[in-house]
């Protein structure tokens, strides 16, 4: 066979694992639907400011606290700002920051976990003790402490959340790495003279990838809650920035008179977190079909 043809067949074969996983994922209607919803939210995060009907910062006290109407499909908040526009623009803050934090946290965490699990000994002990200490704190407390310490601004916020979340990845990665390292195919790789770094990235990482991705999707949900909670508490992103969490905070005082101000951003947050959890479940089932469903 011609080399080009063979190359094509090979690359198709290599992709087959993911192609089939995607097919399995699509069969899960619920997960697929939520993926679609999350997709829309992401698009909004990118194009939000361009499609917002009103200026999200424009105050109009005359039309404050109006319930949803034709003019303002999601109503107005306590300062008369259009909630729909604020939601559309706020998406990039709430979602953007959480996603970046998740990715950063995962990168740090997985790297540390791989090293700890592969080399063991002193490195493993040191890393895991640090992780143990960090995991002893409730995430929100840690996030608050870090946020206060690192000060204002988006970078500080991203750092705070990444640092809060990386320990879970480290522990997970390290534990699985310990198991994978014992498998015969790793021994075979050593017999062939493959170097440690090569073994880590060529053999161990792909085999733990599915678990990490699933964990990351669950953690994306947590991240969003952390960003929103910090925003709600007045740390992290401050008003007038339309971050969904701080929108809930501002709307707190009007729960009886104008509940939509707090509830609508709350609904969007819930939907996003729920979406990540369900997509995470779907990913887990698609990537590792052997894990049987109990229900």
């Amino acid at each position: 066979m011609e080399q080009q043809v063979i190359d094509k067949v090979l690359s198709n074969a290599r992709k087959r694992f993911y192609v089939e996983a995607w097919r399995r994922f699509r069969e899960n209607k619920l997960a697929f639907a939520f993926l679609f919803i999350l997709g829309i939210f992401f698009i909004i995060a990118i194009i939000g400011p361009y499609i917002a009907p009103y200026d999200p910062y424009k105050i109009n006290l005359a039309r404050a606290r109006e319930p949803p109407s034709l003019q303002h499909p999601l109503g107005t908040d306590e300062l008369g700002r259009d909630i729909l526009s604020r939601i559309l623009v706020g998406a990039r803050y709430t979602l953007g920051i959480s996603i970046v934090s998740v990715i950063l946290g995962a990168l740090i965490g997985v790297f540390l976990g791989l090293v700890a699990g592969f080399y063991r000994g002193l490195i493993d002990n040191v890393v895991m003790r640090i992780v143990d200490v960090m995991l002893a704190f409730p995430a929100i407390l840690l996030a608050i402490a870090l946020s206060t310490a690192l000060g204002q601004g988006f970078t500080s916020l991203i750092l705070a959340i990444s640092i809060t979340t990386f320990p879970v990845y480290t522990r997970l990665t390290r534990n699985i790495t310990l198991q994978v390292v014992e498998e015969d195919y790793i021994a075979a790789a050593k017999l062939l003279g493959e170097r440690s770094i090569h073994i880590m990235f060529r053999h161990i990482l792909p085999n733990i990838f599915s678990i990490i991705i699933v964990q990351a999707t669950y953690y994306a949900g947590l991240s969003i809650l952390l960003v929103s909670s910090l925003g709600f508490l007045g740390l992290g992103i401050k008003p007038p920035t339309p971050e969904w969490g701080s929108m809930i905070s501002s709307g707190r005082g009007y729960l009886l008179s104008a509940p939509h101000i707090a509830l609508i951003p709350g609904l969007f947050i819930s939907l996003t977190v729920l979406g990540f959890n369900i997509v995470g479940d779907g990913l887990r089932d698609a990537l590792d079909p052997r894990s049987k469903k109990i229900l």
């Binding site: 090979l10 074969a13 290599r14 087959r16 694992f17 498998e183 015969d184 195919y185 021994a187 075979a188 790789a189 017999l191 062939l192 003279g193 053999h203 792909p206 085999n207």
Partner: peptide, 26 residues
């Protein structure tokens, strides 16, 4: 390393001796 290749091993369990994420060719 120069003797690495002289001695090779075949393992007992066929399910764990091949990297499940790689195609046979690779």
């Amino acid at each position: 390393s120069k003797y690495r290749y002289a001695i090779q091993m075949i393992f007992q369990n066929p399910d764990t001796s091949l990297d499940p994420r790689m195609i046979i060719h690779d």
